[in-house]
Amino acid sequence: MVDVAAGGTPPPGKPQAHEGPQRRGIWSRRLDRLSGRTGRGLVIAVPYVWLICFFLMPFLIVFAISLAEAAIARPPFKLLEDLGYGLYQVTVNLGNYLFLLGDPLYAVAYVNSVKIAAISTLIALLVGYPIAYGIARSSPSLRNVLLLLIILPFWTSFLLRVYAWIGILKDNGLINNFLISLGLIDEPLPLLYNDFSVYVGIVYSYLPFMVLPLYANLERLDPSLLEAAADLGCRPWKAFLTVTLPLSIPGMIAGSLLVFIPAVGEFVIPALLGGPETLMIGRVLWNEFFNNRDWPVASAVAIAMLLLLVVPIMIFQRYQMKQDGA
């Protein structure tokens, strides 16, 4: 997981590969010469075809079905009109999108998802930054242990870790029982089934995604820059604010994107920890699909969610490609 999350920023100092035929590595040159284009083409084709079949095509189908009409049938939508004689007519209707625009439920869910994801990302950044900073400043042997401790929860079931918070936050849960036994409160605090518990759940689940890219970034920082600042009479706090913080912005962006993007479409956390008024778009899509069985509207919700996420996903892809090109 380190590799995935740390992939946010390209290693500094590596020159960008130059354009032109020299850029092709020895692998491709040799492959061309020895086995001809066929062998190389075959190696490329296997994962390429898989991804086109099971990643790209499904999206095109979602888009097509978002333009279909709901029908009482199996599957429950109507896209092709059978005209007889082997002829089909594609019915395109924008009704599902108009329906999304017309019902305030969807607009509220969108705004709410973005709000909850943004606030959780900010909290995760505030909590994660000191942890990443502390790990990057530890001795190398301690560093590996701490990193392992950050990654370890990620390997245990996400569902069960979210479930653990129910026992902690509920009315007769650990926190409320503890506070009541201390005599600090008489009535249990409403900690569960509201926006607060959703924030806790998202920050908790996605904290490693924030810490790892931040750590990768901070660890590469040249300590001589801070020494130079100190030699020139800079106080540590000021050196942190004017040297470390600006240089760690790429790590902050990578970490924030890795938290924000999945948080917007999150289903499990609002479903288990959120209250009935915690509307998030992932949950709306799920209900539309499983409870209302309206596949065309669920598809339209998915397309609309993609439009919302296309900008953050593009930024993330650019980070990936920078690393790819380096």
Binding site: P58, I61, L257, F267, S299
Partner: peptide, 17 residues
């Protein structure tokens, strides 16, 4: 892209496929 794609979208799209 699958690394950052919301699960609900991946799930829905594969089912429709």
């Amino acid at each position: 892209a699958p690394l950052v794609m919301p699960e609900v979208i991946t799930g829905l799209s594969l089912l429709l496929l």
